Amino acid sequence: MVKIALGAGHGINTAGKRTPDGEREWSFNNKVLLACAAKLNKYQDVQILRLDDPTGNTDVPLTTRTNKANAWKADALVSIHHNAFDGKWGSHGGVETLVQEIIASKASKDNAAIIQPRIVQAMGLRDRGVKSKNNHMTRVSNMPAILTEGGFMDSTIDIDALRNDAKLKVQGEAIADGLAEYFKLKLKVAGTPASPKEDEELKFSSPALKLETETSLASKAHRQIIVAAAVKEGAHSSWADKLANNTLTDADVLGLAVKYTIAVNK
């Protein structure tokens, strides 16, 4: 049995972790994680542990995340992120995968070498390569660990890919397939019985942000009010397109309301 620990970086309200237009990094990370988990579940003999808060409401401390992965004795850890340069729109961009500097295990480097080009292909962005950097998630984890950066949130080049849910889905699947290649996993055959019930903390099928159906955010009319007000205050017009296409998540709506100080209980 191969045990994979996955974490979407940060929380939805973590300061600074957003595009210049207010889109939250966690929302991008979460979509990739959900796709990765769904694809991993198509392989035999895999268990998955989610390290972050599946609602995004709490930015789970890094020590809590690595303690959880270490105690579970994961075989690999992937921390999923999207990059930023200075929080202002620019022409920089690209995909990179990080391993721990100096002390990175061969397994970490091998995983990164397999997964990095797959993400580049999935996102259609510049290849910044595998890089060594000192960060908690790769330093403190006892298992092979990598941190993915699937593009720059403040890049005028990368942002179209990040706003494309289909590309984020393919990115998640690329990470899963890269892990499957490293661990030599086999796809389940048709008719394979479902695996035992997963840890309740995973909640991979839960919405990006848990909200009761009777709250104002569940109302399409109120969502339209929030988006229209945000666009009027300077938010990108793509938010209105996402609303029209029914691809706007509760987390997106709440993020707009917070950034542009729009009441959510009108």
Rank of each mutant, 00 (worst) to 15 (best):
V2I: 14
K3A: 12
K3C: 10
I4L: 09
L6G: 02
L6R: 03
L6V: 11
L6W: 10
G7E: 08
G9L: 00
N13Q: 10
T14G: 03
A15E: 07
A15P: 07
P20I: 09
W26Q: 01
S27N: 12
N30S: 11
V32Q: 01
V32P: 03
L33Y: 06
L34T: 05
A35T: 00
C36K: 09
N41F: 01
D45P: 14
V46E: 07
Q47V: 06
L49W: 12
R50M: 12
D53G: 08
L62E: 05
N67E: 05
A69Q: 04
N70Y: 15
A71R: 11
W72E: 03
W72N: 02
W72Y: 06
K73L: 14
K73N: 12
D75Y: 03
A76W: 04
V78A: 08
V78E: 07
S79Q: 04
S79F: 04
I80F: 00
H82Q: 14
H82S: 03
N83H: 00
K88R: 08
W89P: 02
G90L: 04
G90D: 15
S91T: 11
H92I: 07
G94H: 07
V95I: 15
T97W: 02
L98C: 14
V99H: 00
V99P: 02
V99N: 08
Q100K: 11
Q100I: 01
N111I: 12
R118L: 10
R118N: 10
I119N: 03
Q121V: 05
Q121D: 15
D127S: 09
R128N: 06
K131R: 13
S132R: 04
K133T: 05
K133V: 09
N134K: 09
N135P: 08
H136A: 11
T138C: 13
S141P: 07
S141T: 14
N142P: 06
N142S: 09
A145W: 08
T148V: 10
G150Y: 07
G151Q: 09
G151H: 10
M153W: 07
M153T: 01
D154Y: 11
D154M: 12
D158P: 13
R163S: 02
R163T: 01
R163C: 09
A166D: 00
A174L: 13
A176T: 00
D177Q: 13
A180F: 06
E181H: 03
L187H: 14
K197S: 12
K203Y: 00
K203W: 05
K203S: 13
S205R: 01
P207D: 07
K210F: 06
E212A: 03
T213M: 09
E214H: 12
T215D: 03
S216I: 04
S216E: 12
S219D: 07
S219F: 04
A221L: 03
A221Q: 04
R223S: 00
V227S: 02
A228S: 09
A229V: 08
A229I: 01
A230Y: 13
V231Q: 15
K232L: 02
E233G: 00
G234V: 10
A235T: 07
H236V: 11
S237V: 06
S238N: 08
W239L: 07
A240W: 03
A240P: 05
A240H: 01
A244V: 08
N245H: 12
N245C: 02
N246Q: 11
L248K: 03
A251S: 12
D252P: 13
D252G: 00
V253N: 13
L254G: 10
A257C: 13
A257E: 08
T261V: 12
I262D: 03
V264T: 15
